[in-house]
Design a protein around this nucleic acid. Sequence first.
DNA 1: TTCCTTGCAAAGGATTTGCACACCC
DNA 2: GGGTGTGCAAATCCTTTGCAAGGAA
Lengths: 153, 153
Amino acid sequence: MEDVDSQLAQFRDFLSGEGLKLTRQRQAIAAAFYSSGAHLSLQELLDLAREREPSIGYATVYRTMRLMTDGGLATEHQFADGHARFEPAEEGEHHDHLICVTCGHILEFEDDKIEAIQDTIAAAHGMKVQSHRHEIYAECLRPECERRTAKPN
Amino acid sequence: MEDVDSQLAQFRDFLSGEGLKLTRQRQAIAAAFYSSGAHLSLQELLDLAREREPSIGYATVYRTMRLMTDGGLATEHQFADGHARFEPAEEGEHHDHLICVTCGHILEFEDDKIEAIQDTIAAAHGMKVQSHRHEIYAECLRPECERRTAKPN
DNA sequence: TTCCTTGCAAAGGATTTGCACACCC
DNA sequence: GGGTGTGCAAATCCTTTGCAAGGAA
């Protein structure tokens, strides 16, 4: 886990390495993306980025996140809520997600045994694992969770 | 695994039990659904159903599959291709999916060890598993697969 | 006859893209 | 200055719904 500043520096290096420009919009979006530890949707990123650059449009967030995803700086996930969510990609790191069905909070987990079993299952069918998606939807039993339940809708 | 006729009979029983009508359209859709062993999308179900009842509309397939899903006769999945796919639901049965990235063919798998580990992971976070989604995307190494690759697009 | 069903077409909701203008480098 | 980047609006893509006409029971 790196600090936000070095992540932003990485983003700038990525842009200049690709001959792309560092605009106010891209800075605002990247700052929002790296500052929040959460798995944000495009709309949430837009809302956060607008706190710094009010005129930013949805399409710019969309294109910036695509840029980062293609460039390997971000990873995109489609959870059960049906829209894309992004998280910073970390070199050589892999994890899956544990999602609270009550408050929507997303935790990460990693389990070597599961990974190994997946390889075995695929091999049994003459296949080689390329990627996978594994999400556990669970109910949080702790009281803190219930409090977070208070949603607008 | 039951034969198609008894599955269709189950569907008819379900309809009459709910006070719903058995229309030509519903018969055609259910027949298409149960006859194909695959995980079909709404469009694919529509195409198949139209072979029997050419005038069927997309909305009817949508509503029929919703009916079956709500009634517990079908299960809906959202795989990486982004649209809903359906499979017959079997009593008390659970499985996950192994998907070939080359031809898109979907196999089913089930692993008690993985299920158990999931419970452990959730418990470690004070959570109780409610459901999960686990898809393995793999490359088929057998030549038969490549042949199936010849897609229209 | 009664109400459930259907097909069409339009509404949603999220994601993508075209285009003229704005702005980094 | 030149070519990239942006914002808006419109186009997609799939899903969902409203409504008048059709059809099972």
